[in-house]
């Protein structure tokens, strides 16, 4: 019996390019008084990321389009942006999941420098304000600071943060009140407050017990929904609230 081979079905399927329509909120401080929308259409594969598509625009259509990116693999946290109304990383969201009609804006609550680039300094200042580093009084000498698996597990979730600002800039309280430290700073405080090796938990809880601290949180869960690392941000904030309330870590 002879088998006729259909060349189309045998060749590895070449995914067809799709037409992706982008609407980007642009702002050039040297020319514009206010942001405006600009439309672009590019051909891309469904497996392309939103960042790939932005690169295509920048490299083939409009070199002035400005956005941040570094690793392009969801690790550095540079390319947080509002994609179709939700905070996401451009580099880990595929066209096949976000769709071919994209509205892209800079993240909210921080001053826009140009196009999708915002001034992250207020965000990092808030991050630094919670003392996000190990503080100890004792010197273990040439030994490690030992920790049980359970003790490590206690703050495992909040070690995942990449400081992309997706959570803080999705928070309605933060949009209205930029003096709120924001979920990202609280997550990074949580990472050390509940670390058995650290000894400055009460100092951080005092900082977060202030007017601009955890009590600004209104549990809207936007941070938890937005986190590209899947951190239970609201849960972490609530744990810090309870640690302050019960004066117990």
């Amino acid at each position: 019996m002879t088998t006729t081979m259909n060349p189309v079905s045998v060749s590895p399927a070449v995914p067809a390019e799709v037409s992706v329509h982008l609407r980007v909120k642009r702002y050039n401080p040297e020319a514009d008084t206010r942001p405006h929308w600009q439309d672009f259409t590019v051909q891309a594969l469904p497996s392309d990321t939103v960042l790939n598509v932005l690169h295509k625009v920048k490299w083939t259509q409009d070199g002035t389009l400005s956005f941040r990116r570094s690793c392009a693999h969801g690790v550095c946290g540079s390319d947080a942006m509002v994609i179709n109304g939700e905070n996401k990383l451009g580099c880990i969201n595929l066209i096949s999941t976000v769709g071919t009609d994209l509205t892209i804006e800079p993240i909210r609550g921080l001053p826009v420098i140009k196009d999708l680039i915002v001034d992250m300094e207020p965000f990092f200042a808030q991050y630094r304000s919670v003392l996000p580093y190990l503080i100890t009084d004792d010197d273990p000498g040439y030994k490690e600071r030992l920790q049980s698996q359970e003790e490590r597990e206690r703050f495992d979730d909040t070690t995942k943060c990449i400081l992309c600002a997706c959570c803080t800039t999705s928070c309605p309280v933060y949009w209205a009140n930029g003096s709120y430290v924001g979920p990202a700073a609280i997550v990074n405080a949580h990472r050390f407050i509940f670390d058995s090796r650290d000894q400055a938990a009460s100092e951080r809880l005092d900082i977060l017990n202030q007017k601009s601290g955890v009590w600004r949180c209104r549990t809207s869960f936007n941070c938890t929904e937005a986190c590209p690392r899947g951190i239970s941000v609201t849960k972490a904030v609530e744990e810090v609230k309870r640690a302050i309330l019960y004066d117990r870590v």
């Binding site: 909120k25 702002y27 401080p29 206010r34 942001p35 509002v82 179709n84 109304g85 939700e86 509205t103 804006e105 800079p106 909210r108 609550g109 921080l110 001053p111 826009v112 420098i113 001034d119 999705s170 309605p172 949009w175 549990t219 809207s220 869960f221 936007n222 938890t224 929904e225 609201t234």
Partner: peptide
Amino acid sequence: AIAVSPSSTIYKGKSG
């Protein structure tokens, strides 16, 4: 640098 007005589009938060 200016702050972007959040009023131009609505943030698509969930039920929370």
